[in-house]
Design a protein around this nucleic acid. Structure first.
Lengths: 144, 144
DNA sequence: TCTGTATATGCATTAATAATGCATCTTATA
DNA sequence: TATAAGATGCATTATTAATGCATATACAGA
């Protein structure tokens, strides 16, 4: 039980964008350098973030991506649900569990998952950007 | 984001014990046959269930294990927390994330995890045993 | 229109971790 | 003391996530 690095990278990207002035465009390479994470993986994350509508991506020269909405409008539950994939937290099939029809576990876990995401729905990208000034400092220090 | 088979097997074992008369002793082989799951893995699950105090195990001839408490007293959050392992749902180290000190993600996710387990704390082994008669039927049919 | 720079896409490979298998030890009891 | 049960440790396999690599596509500006 742990979110994937994939999801983690997506959130870090949003944080990086979130402390920028609205509409400012950054590239995948810039994020990779900032966090020292592999380009190939991030590539796919950025792509999905674009497809899901969290960021706007633009190809070609002077291309890159930027937030599609202000940080306080990007909800954590939405981002994590999408990046993480919204599958059940218990797998009653493959292989099929014989008691499945008489077992309430899957339903209770599904509700538990709902409780988790409902809690997260109270938070946005703005919520996880704790100390904006400190974040800016970290990034500029790393880049130099 | 999915519970491990390990945890799943543990819960299935408790369900199997839960529909038995109190104190009745079963063996690892019996559980393996009932669910068609590998003995080696279940071995370790049973061992931990014993260590954690959910079941009482007994070695040697005529040995086996039984529930250490009635089903309605065995809380789901306790069982899953123990079997699943209670580690953070995001890993800010290995490798260390540079923005960790300025990032609220880990704290919010920790609270989200808390919300999940708090929800589960309303349920017990008795809760996931939906249809006791049907369960009994499934097991006797499988055994024949 | 050509060239360079950016994301998009698919497939191959590696890494991490869970699951399983195997061997053997320990304990209890008939 | 033989047998049947769980306990334990290590080896192997399977699964899935992560990473690497190659190349396509799009866009901007010279």
């Amino acid at each position: 039980m742990q979110i994937k690095k994939y999801t983690d990278y997506g959130l870090r990207t949003l944080i990086y964008l979130g402390i920028r002035s609205p509409g400012s465009v950054v590239t995948i390479n810039e994020i990779c350098d900032a966090y020292d994470i592999p380009r190939n993986h991030l590539n796919k994350v950025i792509h999905q973030l674009g497809k899901e509508g969290f960021i706007r991506t633009k190809r070609g020269k002077n291309g890159g991506f930027s937030l599609a909405a202000p940080p306080h409008e990007i909800r954590l539950d939405h981002v994590i649900r999408r990046l993480e994939g919204d599958t059940p937290w218990v797998n009653c099939h493959s292989p099929t569990c014989t008691i499945e029809p008489a077992c309430e576990l899957q339903h209770i876990l599904a509700e538990g998952k709902r409780a988790f995401y409902q809690f997260l729905s109270n938070y946005t990208l703005a919520s996880i950007i704790g100390n904006k000034a400190q974040l800016e400092r970290i990034f500029t220090t790393n880049t130099l």
